[in-house]
Amino acid sequence: MKLQDIRDILGAEVITGGNLLSREVSMGCGADLMSDVLAYGKSGSVLLTGLTNQQVVRTAEMAEIVAICFVRGKRPDEKTVSMASSQGLPLMGTTLPMFESCGRLYKNGLRGVSEYGE
């Protein structure tokens, strides 16, 4: 699944990285606890989260997350956006809540981290 598909499925607004939407995403990871993302997230995942601070972008960098989608209509501040943009990390935001965002992506064929082989 490509980032642009995720944008369409979630009716998401692209905050930064609009030129990178052809990037391939192999699985999805939904969490508000960054330690869980670090522990269970895999390289090549899209992260769905309700947290919007700079540590989310740092976490994505360490865990090699390919894009972040903020749920529940949350929006990051300017610093977070510029940090992501300098790392080439696309950010988007959907008004859907976490459960529905994950559900829609899963229904459309995006796999979870536990189903995805190394």
């Binding site: 607004e13 692209v14 905050i15 930064t16 990285g17 609009g18 030129n19 990178l20 929006r75 501040d77 300017e78 956006v81 510029s82 943009s85 696309p90 935001g93």
Partner: peptide, 9 residues
């Protein structure tokens, strides 16, 4: 603040 356009290199 939300940026509408991505900043590329």
């Amino acid at each position: 603040m939300v940026q509408d356009k991505p900043i590329t290199k």
